[in-house]
């Protein structure tokens, strides 16, 4: 890498720039849109020169959508809060269940353990709609429809397999003899798990948790089918912007900015873990 010619370096730089522009441009455009009114957004020809306005954000935060047809109540902040509650709780539950399970699958091979682990992974491949409709009926009967608990339960379909498989790879990477040595020094199986295995797999667990958080945050269909307005996350709540009087582009943009902000911040903060966690998961899984 170090001895690459200036030409290759330049080309590489160019390629990277193109990729970054390709992926970042929509985000940039949306950020710009969020500071404009519907009129400036829709003018022809489009232009990047405009007087920024905080109107859109104001409308979202106060929950009053002012349009030509009148004032519409929306619950964007409530949706955002729901997203936070659902994602955080689902990931927390998944970590609680998935990390010990991953350890068990990594360390104790028993008959059928591979099959069970694979079955859990296969939840990720199944088309969600296939399970959702029957699930919706059951949830109605059980009284779980439109509850946080019910949604968090269903979100385990997203988070648990992810955490299980990524973290398992990390545990498998730790030499069992490290743990054995610790146990011989007079420690129980559980304290070995807590004091040796968990800290060594720490980065992997963090990466898996973050990924699971992002997936949970971005989920749409589960909440669409199983939750009504007061439990809906932003992904579903954003539908409210499509109103009878037209589409409120500025407000949608502001909504998008607000809703991707947490995941974006998390992803940037934990970039290194994410890449490690993802590539390891890919190799191991």
């Amino acid at each position: 890498m170090d001895h690459a010619s200036p030409m290759t370096r330049w080309l590489k730089g160019l390629a990277l720039t193109l990729v970054v522009i390709f992926f970042m441009f929509p985000i940039l455009w949306i950020v710009l849109m969020s500071f404009q009114t519907n009129e400036t957004i829709l003018r022809m020809p489009p232009s990047v020169v405009f007087t920024p306005t905080l109107e859109n954000y104001q409308a979202l935060i106060t929950g009053k959508l002012v349009s030509s047809a009148g004032v519409l109540e929306i619950q964007f902040m409530r949706n955002l809060m729901n997203s936070v509650i659902l994602s955080v709780c689902s990931v927390a539950l998944s970590l609680l269940l998935g990390v010990p399970a991953a350890y068990a699958f990594a360390r104790h091979k028993f008959r059928g353990s591979e099959d069970i682990a694979f079955t859990l992974l296969s939840f990720r491949f199944a088309p969600p709609l296939l399970v959702l409709l029957p699930l919706a009926l059951y949830f109605q009967d059980l009284g779980l429809a439109n509850t946080y608990i019910g949604l968090i339960w269903v979100y385990q379909l997203i988070c648990l397999p992810l955490i299980l498989w990524i973290v398992r790879g990390y545990f498998e990477d730790i030499s069992p003899d490290v743990e054995h040595a610790y146990r011989l020094a007079g420690h129980s199986w559980f304290s070995t798990f807590r004091r040796i295995a968990l800290p060594l797999a720490g980065p992997g667990i963090a990466a898996a948790g973050l990924l699971a958080f992002i997936f949970a945050w971005n989920n749409f269909v589960f909440a669409l089918v199983l939750a009504s307005a007061d439990k809906q996350p932003v992904t579903v709540g954003a539908l409210a912007f499509v109103t009878a009087s037209g589409i409120q582009y500025g407000q949608i943009a502001a909504g998008i900015v607000l809703s991707i902000a947490p995941t974006l911040a998390l992803a940037l903060y934990a970039q290194r873990y994410l890449v490690e966690g993802l590539s390891l998961g890919a190799v191991k899984g």
């Binding site: 030499s175 003899d177 490290v178 054995h180 040595a181 610790y182 040796i196 060594l200």
Partner: peptide, 8 residues
Amino acid sequence: FEGYSLYP
């Protein structure tokens, strides 16, 4: 142990 087993 036969393999290395030091705690990193």
